[in-house]
Design a protein around this nucleic acid. Structure first.
Lengths: 199, 199
DNA sequence: GTCTATATTCCGATAGAC
DNA sequence: GTCTATCGGAATATAGAC
C-alpha cells in the first residue's frame, strides 16, 4: 500500500476508458497515457489486456456493490425496504456512469463465464431480495419472472433516459434519479400490492 | 437492382458483425471476407467505415420497424392492443438477435445525432402508442414516465434474460418470448388498470 | 464494379537497461 | 518498478490496372 498505488490507478483508468469506449476501442497505450506511465509498465502489473480489463471490472463491481449489500442486510422495520432498494439502485445506475456502462456492456458482450461472475459479484444479492418481495404464494417460476421484471424496469428506465430529449413530450428532468425513483417505486408498489401484502 | 446486390450483402453482413462485435472489433477486412469480396471493394460502395456502419444501422432499423408501424395503425377493436404490442415487441427483441443487439449498442454508444435517428426510425411510433395507453387524466410528464416504464420493462426483461441460467431459481425457459410476453402483459395490465380504464 | 498492391498508422506484446 | 526500443501483425484507406 503506497500513497499513490500505480496498480490501482491503472485499474481505475482502465475501467473508465473501457466503460466509455468498449474493449477493442481502448488500447494499452491509451490507458498508460492517461495514467502517466508507459504501456510496457502495464505488462509488469498485468499479464495482458484481457487480464487487465477483467480485473478492472472486478475492481469496480466489488467496490460499488458493497454498500448495496449493506443496505440489504439491514432489517426492514419501516416496511419501506422496496423504496430504499429502488432509491439506492436507481441512484447507483444514474449517478455512477462508469458502473452503469460497465453493467450494460457486460450484459451485451459478456460470455458465460463473465456473466456468471457478474451475477455473483453484483446481481445475485439484490435479486434474492427482490424475489423475497414477491408473493410467496406464487410458484417459484412466477416469482423469478416478477423479480426480473422489477430489476428490468429499473435498468430499462435508466437506459432509455438518454432518449428523453428526442422523444415527444420528453424532458431531461425525467432522467433525474429522484424522479425515476419516485415513479418506479409507485409503479412497483402498485404491482406488488396487487398480488399480496408483501411487507 | 441485381439478382445479387453486393451493396445490400455488405450492409447485411456489416449489421450482423457490428451487432455481435461492436464498432471497433469489426474490421473492413472481416466484412469483406464474409461477403466474399476484397476490402478495397467496400470503399467503392461506401466512403469509409463510419458511413458503412451508419448505413447498415439505418438498413436494419427501417427494415424491422415497418411491421411494427403496420400493427400500430390498425384500429383497436378487441381492446387487446396492449397485448398485441407487447407480443410483437418482445418477439422482435427476443427472436431477432441482430436487431436487439444493435438497439442496445446504440443506447450505450450512440451520440446525440445517432440517438435522435434511432428514436425517429424505431422508437417514436411505439412510444406514442404507449403514451396513448396511459391515463389521459394524468399530466403529460407522468404519462411520459409511464410510457418509459412500459418500454423499459420489456427491454430490461429481454436484456436480463441472458442472466437467468446463473440466477437462483432461474430457468432458461423464462427467456422464451411467449413466457416473457405473457408475464409482462399481465404486469402491465395490472399497472395500467390501476390508473384508468384505458381500453 | 472488382481486383492487386501498397502506404501509413496503430495495435498488443517482449527484451533488456536502469 | 519503470523506462527505451522494437518486433510482427493488423488496421483504415488509397492508387491504379482490368
Amino acid at each position: 500500500m503506497q500513497p499513490f498505488d500505480t496498480r490501482t490507478a491503472i485499474l481505475d483508468v482502465s475501467a473508465r476508458l473501457y466503460a466509455d469506449l468498449g474493449y477493442s476501442a481502448v488500447s494499452m497505450r491509451d490507458v498508460a497515457g492517461v495514467v502517466g506511465v508507459t504501456s510496457a509498465n502495464l505488462y509488469h502489473h498485468f499479464k495482458g489486456k484481457d487480464e487487465l480489463i477483467r480485473e478492472a471490472l472486478a475492481h469496480v463491481f466489488t467496490q460499488k456493490t458493497a454498500p448495496l449489500a449493506e443496505l440489504l442486510e439491514r432489517p426492514d422495520v419501516t416496511g419501506e425496504r422496496l423504496e430504499a432498494f429502488v432509491d439506492h439502485f436507481v441512484r447507483l445506475l444514474v449517478e455512477d456512469r462508469v458502473f452503469f456502462r460497465l453493467l450494460v456492456r457486460e450484459l451485451v458482450d459478456g460470455d458465460g463465464v463473465r456473466l456468471r461472475d457478474l451475477v455473483q459479484s453484483v446481481l445475485e444479492y439484490p435479486f434474492r431480495l427482490v424475489v423475497g418481495l414477491t408473493d410467496p404464494q406464487q410458484p417459484e417460476g412466477e416469482r423469478v419472472l416478477m423479480a426480473v421484471s422489477i430489476l428490468g424496469i429499473i435498468l430499462g428506465h435508466v437506459q432509455l433516459a438518454v432518449l428523453l430529449p428526442y422523444l415527444p413530450g420528453g424532458q431531461p428532468e425525467h432522467a433525474d434519479s429522484s424522479v425515476i425513483t419516485r415513479h418506479v417505486s409507485a409503479v412497483l408498489r402498485r404491482v406488488l400490492d396487487g398480488t399480496a401484502e408483501s411487507i
